[in-house]
Design a protein around this nucleic acid. Structure first.
Lengths: 152, 152
DNA sequence: TGACAAAGTTAGAACCGCCTAACTATATTA
DNA sequence: TAATATAGTTAGGCGGTTCTAACTTTGTCA
């Protein structure tokens, strides 16, 4: 087998994967420079990460060339992005946290939550939406509750 | 100043601090061996961490002696433990996740969540409890919703 | 009290992730 | 097309966290 499928990605490598995934989604191509900027790291750090991702069979990449994800890489990245979205959604839609902070918090926490927690969280977000449809407005009620609490 | 108060604790050092805090809470004394066991690390790793915590002014510690926390150390540890409790509480009481998994997930995620998110989460747990008192039983409703969803 | 067990430490190495400095390759443009 | 600007790479180093092996200190108990 060419690429050893070591599924255990470090938080750092997950970040690189997600960055490539997102950049490719908007501009078809992920350039090393943009990855570096997005993650606020120096260029050599990106090169190093790309070499590891290639070795793991997650990224198609050759020196001085474009970067794309393999099927496995895309699958892994999609899962990470999904976690990110669910978390961010919970933070903004349920807890009412500002988008900027929610974005940053989701980015940090997304690496630590396993499938079970994520699945529950997703279910909870749906549930809250449903309650809202049925006229209960959970998020709104919490918002008021929290505001009242703060002024006590 | 003797101990440089570098507030930026790594996740790893936070783990050591929390371990000492919890061990001291139950047996008055935190022994190096128990810290190692609790965190699943080798003994020299504990020694190294203790030296750093001492240098940071968070732990009172001398070679071959007992380990206690300084005032600053206790304050920092309490804050970490508080995050842990809030997170675990949310996972078990609101999302209905089993205590064991919730414990482990909280342990990982507690290092990534800032004060704002924690504060909101705490507020939300209180809110859910309140709703429960007023006969709404949010957690119970979600539990049913989630069970139904899974069988669809 | 002296030997042995348990606990703790020091030394040295490895790995990870990041950096800067210096180099090479590619792209641009005059 | 040749000079220059931009992008990417290699080499080497640093801090953080962990390990094993070997040592020292402390505690126990016959």
């Amino acid at each position: 087998m060419a690429g050893a499928k070591d599924n255990n990605l470090s938080a750092s490598l997950e970040d690189y994967l997600e960055a490539i995934y997102n950049l490719a989604a908007e501009s078809k191509v992920a350039r090393s420079k943009d990855i570096a900027k997005l993650l606020s790291v120096a260029k050599p750090s990106v090169t190093g990460a790309l070499q590891i991702l290639r070795k793991k069979g997650l990224a198609n990449y050759e020196a001085y060339g474009f970067v794309t994800l393999t099927g496995a890489g895309r699958a892994a990245a999609a899962e990470i992005a999904r976690k990110h979205e669910i978390l961010k959604s919970f933070l903004t839609d349920v807890l009412g946290i500002e988008p900027g902070l929610a974005q940053r918090a989701a980015c940090k926490a997304e690496h630590t939550l396993g499938p079970k927690v994520i699945s529950r969280l997703l279910g909870f977000i749906e549930f809250v939406g449903n309650e809202n449809d049925s006229g209960y407005d959970l998020a709104g009620k919490f918002k008021k509750y929290y505001a009242r609490k703060r002024t006590r």
